[in-house]
Design a protein around this nucleic acid. Sequence first.
DNA 1: CTAGAATTCAAACGATCGTTTGAAGGTTGG
DNA 2: CCAACCTTCAAACGATCGTTTGAATTCTAG
Lengths: 206, 206
Amino acid sequence: MSEAPLFSTKQRILGAAEDLFARHGFAGASLRQVTTAANVNLAAVNYHFGSKDKLIEEVFRRRLDELNARRMAALACVTAKSKASLEEVLDAFITPALELSLDRSGGSAFVRVLARAYAEHNEHLRKFLSDNYGHVLREFAGAFAKLLPHLDKEELYWRLDIVAGALTYAMADFGVIKRRHGQSERDFRERAAQHLIRFAAAGLRE
Amino acid sequence: MSEAPLFSTKQRILGAAEDLFARHGFAGASLRQVTTAANVNLAAVNYHFGSKDKLIEEVFRRRLDELNARRMAALACVTAKSKASLEEVLDAFITPALELSLDRSGGSAFVRVLARAYAEHNEHLRKFLSDNYGHVLREFAGAFAKLLPHLDKEELYWRLDIVAGALTYAMADFGVIKRRHGQSERDFRERAAQHLIRFAAAGLRE
DNA sequence: CTAGAATTCAAACGATCGTTTGAAGGTTGG
DNA sequence: CCAACCTTCAAACGATCGTTTGAATTCTAG
C-alpha cells in the first residue's frame, strides 16, 4: 500500500493512462492502448485498480492530493500576513498548478486531463472531485471574499467561476498561442501564469 | 440539398447527435444511441452523412455557419461607427453565442459540444474548425488590436486567448454557479454574458 | 398507373471494447 | 526446500462498436 517504486507496474499504468486520457479522452483511450504503452499485460489494470473507472479516479488522486496540499500551504502562507494582496492569493492558487504542469513527465498531460474532466459532465466524476477536493475551493473563495468586500456573494462567485474557467483553459494549453522557437517550456508557462494573474486580478477588482 | 424540413431524418439525427455528443463526448456517444434517440434506423447515419466523423463535422457546420455570420454582422455594425467601444466589440462576439445557447432545443447542447471540441486536441477536428471559421477570429483580433494600441501583438494575443477560454468555459456551463429557483434560463444566461463582458473588458484594458 | 430513384429496414460483418479466468512465474518467510 | 502468497501472462468471455449489405418500402416524375 505505502510502496510506490518509480517504475512499478502501477506507476507505469498511471503514467500511460494520464498521457492517453489527455490525448484521446476517457472513452477514447482503451485499456489495450494504455497497457501497451505502459508495457504491461492487459489484465494488470483490473488486477491493480479493479476497473477502468477506478483507474481514472486514481489518475486524479495521484496528482490532486499533492497539488491541493501545495495550494493550501501557499494560501496559509499568504493569509498569515495581515494584509495579503489579491495577486498573492491568485498566485497561491495558480503557481502550484503551474509547477505541476512543469513536472517532468506527466504533469502537462495531467492539466489537460483535468480540463477533460470539466468537459465531461459525468456525474460520478464530478461528485468524486467535489467530495475529495471541494474544501480547497471553498477555502480560496473565503480568502477572496475578504479581499473583495465590495462584491456581494453572488457577484464574487460569478467572477471566481470565470477565473476558474480561464485558468483551466489556459493551463490545458487549449489556446492559439504557441511557444516560440528557442523559448523554454518553463519560460513559456511562467509567462502564461503571469498574464493570467494580472488579467484575473483586474477582472476581479473591476 | 437545399431542403431542410424541420423534422426530417437528417435533422433528427443532427439534433440527437448534438445532445448526446454534449453529454457523452464524441467517442462516448455511439451511433446506436444517436439513432435510437432520433427514432431512426441505425444505417441512416451512414446513408445520409457517410460516416460518424462526417456527422460530427455536420453538427458543427449547422450551427457555426449561422453563429459566425451573426458575429461578423454584429462586428461590421459596431466597427462602422468611428469610435467603437471595447465592450461593444466583446458584445458582438459574445451575444450571438448567447443567443445560440438560448435557441430552443439544441443550442445549449451545442455550446457544450463546442467546448468538447476544444478539449479534444484532435488534429482533424481542429483543422476543420480552423479552415472553416478561422477568418472570424482573425477579424475580431484586428478589431481588438485597433482598440488596444498600447498592447503589442504578443500581449494582445495572450489576453484574447484568456478571454476565449473564459467564454468557452462560461457558455458551456462548466462552472459551479447554478440557476436559482424562479430565475429564467434567459435571465440567467444574459446575466452570465454581462459579467463576462465586464470582466473581459477590465482584463483587456488592464 | 407505373418505372425508377430515394429512403428505410433488419440483419450481419469484422473489429475492438472492458472484464474474467486459470495457469505460470516470481518472491518471501519459516 | 517448500508452502504461501503476489504478480504476470495468454486466452477467451459476451457486449458493443462503426460500417456494409441487399431486400422492402416510400416517394416522385412521366
